[in-house]
């Protein structure tokens, strides 16, 4: 089962505190802190970035900006969307 929700990175650390060790990111998952491995991340996240997590590993790093671009793409697809619909804050 794929978890689609991007999780926000709070901290980056080395597993046993040594430089050569694999890195993990501490993320916020439903208010709980969780460590995810970064072995597979396409880009090592910075604090404040988001990661998509699968089976304990980050498989993709994104910024909030990238998610917004995707949202814009969908809005453009929905040509019928009235300009002042309820989803605009």
């Amino acid at each position: 089962m794929c978890l689609a929700i991007p999780m926000r990175v709070k901290e980056i650390k080395n597993i046993f505190g040594e430089l050569a060790d694999p890195q993990v990111a501490v993320v916020d998952a439903d208010g709980m802190e969780k460590e995810v491995r970064l072995d597979l991340a396409d880009r090592i996240p910075e604090i404040g970035d988001y990661v998509i997590v699968h089976a304990g590993f980050a498989i993709h790093t994104l910024t909030e900006q990238e998610a917004l671009i995707n949202l814009q793409l969908m809005r453009e697809m929905a040509a019928a969307l009235p300009p002042d619909s309820e989803e605009t804050p």
Partner: peptide, 18 residues
């Protein structure tokens, strides 16, 4: 992520469905 909820907003899904 703030915009995560926007992907779930009825407004965008309904417009896409139309």
């Amino acid at each position: 992520m703030k915009c995560a909820s926007e992907f779930r907003a009825r407004g965008i899904t309904d417009a896409l469905l139309r």
